[in-house]
């Protein structure tokens, strides 16, 4: 993956989360931007879930934008992985997640 690629998944419906991924050049690191209707109560948890999932998949150089409408953890993971697959990442089986 040499050039920046953008991939989306999810919706802005209630209980969903819209993930936008943009692949960054090596060395850029993870940059995660979160908007959430439950920022005060779950902002840290959402960030943690996204970071853990990226790290487990070995995705290091990435920009993630998450617009959250109250998604549960399982939804956040599923949407993030879908976006990653759409961006062309080869994903580890996540059966143990």
């Amino acid at each position: 993956m040499e050039t920046a690629q953008i991939a989306h998944s999810g919706t802005l419906e209630s209980n969903d989360i819209m993930i936008t991924l943009s692949v960054r050049p090596p060395g850029s690191g993870q940059q995660i931007e979160i908007q959430s209707i439950v920022m005060q109560q779950y902002g840290d948890a959402i960030r943690q879930t996204i970071t853990d999932t990226l790290n487990y998949q070995g995705i290091i150089d990435i920009y993630v934008k998450a617009v959250d409408r109250g998604a549960l953890d399982c939804t956040i993971k599923a949407r993030l992985l879908t976006a990653a697959a759409r961006a062309g990442f080869k994903l580890k089986e996540d059966n143990d997640l």
């Binding site: 998944s9 999810g10 399982c74 939804t75 993971k77 599923a78 949407r79 992985l81 879908t82 697959a85 759409r86 997640l97």
Partner: peptide, 9 residues
């Protein structure tokens, strides 16, 4: 693809 992952989770 999105639904498959969502349902799996």
């Amino acid at each position: 693809d999105a639904a498959r992952r969502l349902v799996a989770h």
